[in-house]
């Protein structure tokens, strides 16, 4: 049997927000180590990889590996019924065709349970090779969201150009051109406000705005975001999830015709 208890169910709400624009359904793979999800968006251009370690949960039990195919619109309906401060317990029997979500209010005076049907999904897992990236940029997640939103007004693509000095985001289209430069922060009071760049080689790559904007739906999960880039390989946009793990988005760079 599978059982996972989460005192603050807001984390799962945020995770759902972070994936439901890209994915209609997904398989949650549960094992002793935790819950993992890997899925491509419908157009197979981007990939979402979620890792929630079992030790982040307040209680976690997984006797046998379990793959839960979930319609994310259905799960969203259920998670909307939970208060942010509710205690969440997810339960499923081995080989079950349904999963139960139980919400308990902090004072335990209200207990709700929702049973959701699981679906069979043809899951295609991709092997993601270990990569030494040429540039690793860490920056405030809110700033990244703002830049993606602002630049998407100017064009369908964003060019990200990283050097030792800083990172430049550019877009161009009918309106004109836009450039946003961020320098490494010299010293900041709070670590989460810092912009840091680890660079082996300068990199310039072009990405579709639409997907970057979808990735920023994860902003609520972490104050910082990490962008990893190398020439001719997918960009990795990573948000850490507190004590649990991370969500990573991969996006293939656009190539010359």
């Amino acid at each position: 049997m599978f059982e996972a208890r989460l005192v603050q169910c807001s984390m799962l709400k945020k995770v759902l927000e972070a994936i439901k624009e890209l994915l209609n359904e997904a398989t949650f793979d549960c094992s002793d180590a935790g819950i993992q999800l890997q899925a491509m968006d419908n157009s197979h251009v981007s990939l979402v990889s979620l890792n929630l370690r079992s030790d982040g949960f307040d209680k976690y039990r997984c006797d046998r590996n379990l793959s839960m195919g979930i319609n994310l619109a259905s799960m969203t309906k259920i998670m909307k019924c939970a208060g942010n401060d509710d205690v969440l317990t997810i339960k499923a029997q081995d080989n079950a065709d349904n999963v139960m979500f139980m919400f308990e209010s902090q004072n335990q005076e209200k207990v709700s349970d929702y049973d959701m049907k699981l679906i069979n999904l043809d899951q295609e897992h991709l092997g993601i090779p270990e990569t030494d990236y040429s540039c690793i940029i860490k920056m405030p997640s809110g700033e990244f969201a703002r830049i993606c939103r602002d630049l998407s007004q100017f064009g369908e693509s964003v060019v990200i150009s990283c050097t030792k000095e800083g990172v430049k985001f550019s877009a161009a289209g009918d309106v004109g051109a836009a450039n946003i430069k961020l320098a490494q922060t010299a010293n900041v009071d709070k670590e989460e406000e810092a912009v840091t760049i680890e660079m082996q080689e300068p990199v310039t790559l072009t990405f579709a705005c639409r997907y970057l904007n979808s990735f920023t739906k994860a902003t609520a999960l972490s104050p910082q975001v990490q962008l990893s880039m190398s020439a001719d390989v997918p960009l990795v946009v990573e948000y850490k999830i507190g004590d649990f793990g991370h969500i990573r988005y991969y996006l293939a760079p656009k190539i010359e015709e």
């Binding site: 251009v45 293939a252 190539i255």
Partner: peptide, 14 residues
């Protein structure tokens, strides 16, 4: 203009 390649061009199916 530029083309948007699919993820499978970079990562192999396991």
């Amino acid at each position: 203009s530029r083309l948007q390649p699919e993820m499978k061009l970079f990562f192999r199916a396991r």
